[in-house]
Every structure is written in C-alpha cells, then in structure tokens.
C-alpha cells in the first residue's frame, strides 16, 4: 500500500508541477494586467521619418512649396541633417523652406527675408512653437491663397517629417500670431491632421 501509494504520488507529481507552473503563469499574467501602467505613457520621442540617409548623417526630408499657378502645394525631397536636437533639425527644415525650391515649377511660400528666431517643443502636448521675426507678416503678400500656402507649407512639412508633432503654433516676436494676413485664425496651434 505504501509502495503503491508512493508510486501514485510519484506518477502524479509531474502533473502537479505542470499545474502549479500554469497557475503561477496565470497569476503572473493577471498581476501584469492589473498592475502594469497603461494610463500614463511616456511621450513618443520626436524623430525624423524614415528615408534615404546621406553619408554625413543626413536624411531625405519632404519640403512643401507652392506651384506657380496657386493651385496647391507640391513636395520636393532634400537631404538635411538627421542628427542632433529636434529644435536644430526643425530650424534646418524651416530654413530650407525659406530658401525656396530647386524646381523652377515651384515657388517658396514664405517671404525670402523671413527669420526664424526660435523653435521650442512641448513634448507633453506635441505642440511645436515656431517664433518668427515680424518680416513674416510685414513682407507677406497677403491674399487668402498666399496666406493658406504659407501656413500649409509649414504645417505639412513639419507634420510629414516629424510624426510626434501634432500641432504647430506660429508666433511672432514671442507672441502667438492672431492672423498672418487676415483670413485664417492662427491664435491657436494649427492641427497637423487638419492641414494635411
């Protein structure tokens, strides 16, 4: 009896071990589901979208310019620095927009003497602040087509290359710009999704 009982015990022992292991796994999984943080996630780090990488740490950036007939925007690829702080990379991108397109069929949508004073980024809200000097307004040609193109060129270019940025606030001399030329409300950040 004792020997037989010992045999049964020896036969059941692996089954029990499997069951207890399974139980342990279920408990661990339950605990993970219960206690692993979900509601508060760290913000996604801004990054340049994947693209061709140049020899000197450059990436292919998509820049948006206007067409000659004011029918809309078209993109042009440019190799720009892909490393370093986000603010510096965005300064390079905006400088390229101000420099204008390579193609003769496209036109720049920012006044050529515009100067970007400062860039800063709130990673909590995904808002990018672009602080220009007043020439953005004073040298702007006006008209709803040109005003739309200036804003769309900035927002589409930023949105296409920096996926973590959800909205863009245009500023002049440190203050939010109420309106660039009187047709579009720019007193609040412009949603990237709405300008794509």
């Amino acid at each position: 009896m004792t020997r037989r009982g010992g045999e049964v015990a020896a036969r059941r022992s692996p089954v029990r071990m499997v069951l207890w292991s399974l139980a342990g796994l279920i408990l661990a999984g339950g605990a993970w589901l219960l206690f692993w943080p979900r509601a508060i996630e760290p913000p996604e780090a801004p990054s340049i979208a994947t693209g061709e990488t140049g020899a000197a740490g450059e990436a292919s950036i998509m820049l948006f310019f206007g067409d000659r007939e004011a029918r809309g925007l078209a993109s042009e690829q440019r190799l720009l620095p892909a490393q370093g702080p986000l603010e510096g990379r965005i300064e390079s991108v905006v400088a390229a927009l101000i420099d204008g397109p390579d193609s003769q069929e496209l036109v720049r949508c920012l006044p050529p003497d515009t100067h970007l004073r400062r860039v800063f980024h709130d990673d909590e809200s995904g808002t990018l602040f672009l602080d220009f000097d007043p020439t953005l307004v004073t040298h702007h040609p006006g008209g709803s087509a040109a005003e739309w193109a200036t804003l769309a060129s900035l927002v589409r270019t930023i949105g296409s290359n920096f996926p973590a940025i959800a909205r863009v606030q245009v500023m002049v001399d440190g203050d939010p710009l109420e309106a660039l030329a009187g047709h579009f409300d720019t007193s609040h950040p412009l949603e990237v999704a709405a300008w794509q």
């Binding site: 949508c109 087509a145 040109a146 193109a149």
Partner: peptide, 9 residues
C-alpha cells in the same frame, strides 16, 4: 483680392 508668390497666378 488675392495674392501669390508668382505673378502668373
């Protein structure tokens, strides 16, 4: 009245 960056529009 409208305006653009190129005189052809």
């Amino acid at each position: 009245c409208n305006a653009w960056y190129d005189t052809s529009a």
